[in-house]
Computed example of a mutant assay.
Amino acid sequence: MTTPTQALSDAGVSIWLDDLSRSRLTDGSLKALIEEKNVVGVTTNPTIFHLAITKGHGYDAQLAELAAAGADVEHAVFELTTADVADACDLFAPVAEATGGVDGRVSIEVDPRLAWDTAATIAEAKKLHAKVGRDNVHIKIPATLEGLEAITETLGAGISVNVTLIFSLTRYRAVVNAYLLGLEKAKANGHDLSQIHSVASFFVSRVDTEIDRRLEAIGTEEAAALKGQAGLANARLAYQVYQEEFSSERFRLLADAGARPQRPLWASTGVKDPNLPDTLYVTGLVAPGVVNTMPEKTLEATYDHAQVTGDTVTGTYAEANAHLDALAALGIDYNDVVAVLESEGLEKFVASWNELLGDIEAGLAQASAAKGV
């Protein structure tokens, strides 16, 4: 009997887990998700690492070693996170080999405090890539205006990139342009384009959270009827952009040199409104050549009861545009919505990173005191 996750994979959707921890690596649970639930990649972010490292005792031994070596907090966090990502890359290496590097990817994000600093982001991306030292790592770079050049330069150095925190269609087009520029630079620099991979992480549920809040403030029946639909509409129109951009003559010339399309990745696919179906952002975004990165709760719901009916994106563009037009007619400013979401997303990641630094600093001090250092 075909499981829903197998049906999703058969429909052309790569399932990645939006979570990573040392316990997942050591207790075999991540390996089980690969074998049983069609998981073929992993994404991480500062919030995920903060939760992983500050829960339980899986990192105590390495933290004690770092304290004994006199590591400062920045170095300690760098060592802790890259160790997990390198081990996860090794676990997914067979998947990467079987798919030509398309899947089997593990993402690690640059320090989110650097999101507005192009040069520092480039330097951090190269440092992370060198430290992890695995071909199937993705370096995550936020799609801020300052991040666009960093994306291009990182790709130009032959490093695979996961572009994160994309909310707007306009910014997504700029991300695709940054990717193509990066490939052009990589080609000029003598890199094998077939070895460079990228995904563009388009966030979904947070769009509904923000727009539904504004619809509730309007308070009319007309506004209520539009709730819970903008996230899908926005993502579906992103797929239309993907189809347009990667059927262009510009990309064809790069493809002839071995380049691959930058795949759309649906992120933030856990449903935040309990009134919505818990697999909405999975079954509503089925299309060939995409990635859906799911928190474990969404993955389990998908495996248990998702109804996968084939492509639910292609051919929906007129309806999606009509929905965004209806929102605009009610006075909801799309550009303001996506600007707020980008700002809030970065603020959340920076806050998580700062909390992680504080907790690790305390952990280092505690370990040093225990050893009498």
Rank of each mutant, 00 (worst) to 15 (best):
A225F: 07
A225R: 14
L226V: 07
G228V: 05
Q229P: 06
Q229Y: 05
A230C: 06
L232T: 08
L232I: 14
A233R: 00
N234S: 12
A235V: 09
L237V: 07
Y239W: 13
Y239P: 01
Q243W: 13
Q243T: 14
Q243F: 14
E244Y: 03
F246N: 00
F246T: 00
S247V: 05
S247N: 14
S248G: 13
E249L: 13
R250A: 11
F251L: 01
R252E: 14
R252H: 12
A257W: 12
G258R: 02
A259W: 04
A259E: 00
R260E: 11
P264E: 05
L265W: 08
W266H: 08
V271F: 12
K272S: 12
P274V: 08
N275P: 00
P277N: 03
P277C: 11
P277I: 14
D278E: 15
D278W: 11
T279H: 06
Y281T: 02
V282L: 10
V282F: 03
L285H: 05
L285D: 01
P288I: 02
P288F: 05
V290E: 02
M294Y: 07
K297F: 10
K297V: 15
K297P: 09
E300N: 14
A301F: 15
T302M: 09
T302C: 12
Y303S: 12
A306S: 07
Q307V: 15
V308A: 04
V308I: 15
T312K: 01
T312G: 05
T312M: 08
G315K: 05
T316F: 08
T316Y: 13
T316I: 03
E319K: 11
E319I: 04
H323A: 08
L324I: 14
D325M: 09
